[in-house]
Design a protein around this nucleic acid. Structure first.
Lengths: 343, 343
DNA sequence: CGCAATCCCCAAACCGCTTTGGACAATCGC
DNA sequence: GCGATTGTCCAAAGCGGTTTGGGGATTGCG
């Protein structure tokens, strides 16, 4: 256990009040006393007990990240790791703690209520929003500052969020493929109930429509984003009577699967068939270099984590600074996986 | 903010003492009062304030996971996500909170000292141990219960850990390849300073030695486990004058890279060249099915998380239950990526 | 019926910090 | 020179729980 304020004060012949003020930069202590206090604190490796401090101040100095795990799929989305690393940087800088809750989706409401009732955190970040997500209404009702990583579509009340421009990204990517002469473009998307998947599909559909192309339901898939999912999708679609000449993938992992599926069929990316993927810039799946392997809609999810955390902390400091939102644009980076449609 | 104990007690016309006891199962309250208390608590959604409770009891009811991020590489190991999901299950069941710290490796010592001095947690889980890891000595000195996910090699004091049998896994995998006639086997390992990498290499070397084969330094690589790393390693090694006929990969991500590198060279896995990888059973990189794509040394890192958390909690409850350790064996599962050495 | 034991319950102290409301000197203004 | 500021410091009251040390009302027993 560490030194307590009382002990530290006693060792200096001062009252806890004075030492507390000295360390917290209040004006009513003399410069000499302040310095003495600071030196003693450093020497004793004194750090105020978090729980006592936050009990006294009413602020937990902690933010919760609630990560839903679908009870049916049990898949932990790998982008969380990088997002959280980004958020962690911000918290560290501002003296906040990060608490993590992994909750099965049938226990989410209870988890939020519990978190708020216990007062364990000052704010929460909501991960993996669905198209219709009841968590926003719940959190608003509970009256705790929160920020959504992503958005949801059917909520009428305002809320704070940070998202990438999914619709525009996929709209541009689709347009790009169309300009290359592709007319049959497959969309290998995330689970249908996820909000990002909906927006991406909308962007894709709109680009097709604007080009006068009719979308083919057989070319659109929704599922959890695993490597084998991409593999199977590629293999099956390529064997259609009228196969696609290009693929749009919702994540690098899926893109890997697609590439494997295609190359197993003897198709070469960028020549026989084109692939564009969304790239979250996960640190262990880099897609850079002079010519990235994949043409991609790129946006750093780690940077998103940093910014989301900063926004939430501002919200915690000043809840009336109102709903905050940030829409990050993605870059469409050209890689080796796209080319003109073969004829 | 939630209801306080005082308010709840007042609403029942009882003292806080009595209600506290009723809810915590102490014997000195009548059955009727206890029930009244419990019902009222449920109705009011009362949850004791975490900070107040732990201040009073001296227990934080929280565990920290400290995740080192190398300042030079900035890579967040993706296995953390699944490990943490497993640990989270255990914590949820036992009423513990999980706090996460992402720390640059030059700030680790400070992070641990801070954590302990503030008394924010009852125990910590150490991730990513290196071959020589000073953190073990530091934590022992700080006197906080801790458990290492993995092991370290140069520490003489006992400590608690949970690890997979890396050495035996790679020993068996290498043996298996040798029995298939492979004599030139490449090892595409993780970073040299990581303890798991050392152990895997040892297993590999011993198997070679036992078979009377001399290891070739040109066939052994160490680096951060990314996909492009596997890709480059495969491409370069295959072009050696005496190329390997088999690869041992330290993770699925690396194995994906290797496969891509090989198939770009026109080599087919399992026929022209063999690959065995370690498989952590990450949820989004499944390697199962009737015939898994990769022959692999398999062990669920999620299950490891569950068990590690349970062990640490036991250590927290009874610090004298002594250093605990668990060595999980891996399964060598046969997939489609291995076959007899071509001649 | 009287006294002790048993049941239930409560007041108050405490965990380690912050913060309010002074107290006491030294300094200032006139 | 004297009252009013100003500058420093401290005692005490919380924050929301748990826990110690009783205390009053029942019950049990002789």
């Amino acid at each position: 256990m560490g030194v307590t304020l009382k002990q530290l004060a006693a060792s200096l012949g001062l009252s806890p009040t004075t030492v507390s003020r000295a360390l917290n930069g209040f004006p009513e202590v003399s410069a000499a006393t302040r310095q003495r206090g600071e030196e003693a604190a450093a020497r004793a490796n004194y750090h105020p007990n978090t729980r006592a401090k936050s009990l006294a101040t009413g602020r937990a100095q902690a933010i919760a990240h609630v990560i839903p795990v679908s009870t049916s799929h049990e898949i932990v989305n790998p982008v969380f790791a990088d997002f959280i690393a980004g958020a962690g940087e911000t918290y560290a800088r501002q003296g906040y703690e990060m608490v993590l809750r992994i909750v099965p989706d049938d226990a989410e409401a209870a988890a939020y209520r519990d978190l708020v009732a216990r007062g364990s955190v000052d704010g929460v970040i909501v991960h993996g929003p669905r198209t219709r997500d009841r968590r926003i209404a719940l959190l608003a009702e509970l009256g705790i500052p929160f920020l959504v990583h992503g958005r949801t579509s059917d909520v009428n009340q305002p809320y704070s969020w940070l998202d990438i421009n999914n619709q525009r990204s996929f709209h541009r990517a689709t347009q790009f493929l169309i300009e290359f002469g592709h007319t049959r473009i497959a969309l290998i998307n995330g689970m249908a109930e996820m909000d990002f998947a909906t927006r991406r599909r909308n962007g894709y559909l709109r680009a097709l429509e604007q080009a006068g192309l009719t979308p083919d339901p057989a070319l659109m898939r929704h599922a959890e984003m695993t490597e084998p999912y991409g593999y199977r999708a590629a293999q099956e679609l390529v064997q259609l009577p009228e196969p696609p000449t290009a693929f749009l993938a919702s994540s690098m992992i899926v893109a890997y699967g697609i590439r494997r599926g295609l190359s197993d069929m003897g198709l070469k990316l960028g020549r026989d068939i084109s692939v564009i993927t969304h790239d979250d810039e996960l640190s262990y799946l880099p897609n850079d270099g002079d010519v990235p392997t994949f043409t991609a809609t790129r946006s750093s999810v780690r940077e998103a984590g940093r910014r989301a955390a900063a926004m939430l902390l501002q919200l915690v400091d000043a809840p009336d600074s109102g709903p905050l939102s940030a829409l990050m644009e993605t870059a469409l980076v050209l890689g080796a996986s796209t080319g003109p449609a073969p004829r």
